[in-house]
Simulated scan of single mutants.
Amino acid sequence: MARRRQLYEGKAKIIFEGPEPGTVVQYFKDDATAFNNQKKGTITGKGVLNNRISEYLMTRLGQIGVPTHFIRRLNMREQLVRQAEIIPLEVIVRNLAAGSFAQRFKMEEGTPLPRSIIEFCYKNDDLGDPMVAEEHITAFGWASPPEIDDIVQQTIRINDFLTGLFLGIGIRLVDFKIEFGRVWDNDVMRIILADEISPDSCRLWDADTNEKMDKDRFRRDMGEVEEAYQEVARRLGVMPENPSDFKGPKLVH
């Protein structure tokens, strides 16, 4: 595919003009950042792995009726997605206490929460992506009350599905971050899942050992970052070691 005009470059991806109206090309980089861009580095092959992992998870979510921006994967690092007006919110789902949440409430990492907790953060690197309440979201016009309701309902469904899917391959979905955008179909606005779902945006722990299999290995200088991402991809079946023996994840209800 010929290189097209660059529209935007973020910390982990570059967005290019798409081949047809209403589409863009999402390119996955190997660049890694943490702590609001204060720590920077490279995870070799991360872009390739995240492209395949996000493709698989977005496709599975689409199959259960969750609307997403994903159209198809173009090559090892690029995928064609619907162009959406990104809502400037990070939606964070927490199933276990970990990371900044555990520090904030002085809880031991891995402590189960009474129920899954959904938090919102305002997408602004200069401000450090501050946590916000629904009052902030509606007051500043980032999303309307019905849009927030739609986002929350979709997020709960996404969490339920992904928790079972990952558990089926021996991984605990500790927490994750997702983003949503607006698209218009025949003058009707819809909220769809956008961005990516990958070890960059999820905390994934081995269900038996609690070994971290995500970007925390980069954040905390734990080493074997590439191997952790590869293991997630292998268990999902998107890069199996032996395609004839590995059948992919089994969904746990």
Results as ranks from 00 to 15, higher is better:
E109N: 03
R172W: 07
A102D: 00
G248Q: 11
F120I: 00
S116G: 13
R77S: 04
K11F: 08
L173H: 00
N210Q: 08
L236C: 04
M58V: 09
L96A: 09
I178D: 02
Q103D: 11
E109M: 03
F101P: 00
K250A: 13
R5I: 07
N186D: 11
R4Y: 12
G164A: 04
E196W: 01
L167K: 12
I156G: 12
N124M: 15
K177L: 12
E17S: 08
T59H: 14
G128N: 08
I148T: 12
V91S: 02
E241I: 15
E241Q: 13
V25S: 08
V24I: 14
T209E: 11
E109I: 02
N186G: 03
T155A: 02
K212G: 08
I137S: 02
A32W: 04
E224V: 09
I191Y: 03
T111D: 03
G181L: 08
G65Q: 12
M239R: 11
A207N: 05
V188I: 13
Y8S: 14
L49C: 01
T209L: 10
M222N: 08
R82E: 03
E90A: 11
Q230I: 15
G10C: 06
L96T: 05
V132T: 12
R220A: 03
N51T: 14
S54K: 02
N75R: 01
G164T: 07
L173T: 06
N242M: 14
Y229P: 06
I86Y: 09
G99H: 12
D129N: 15
L127F: 11
A194W: 03
T59R: 09
D206T: 10
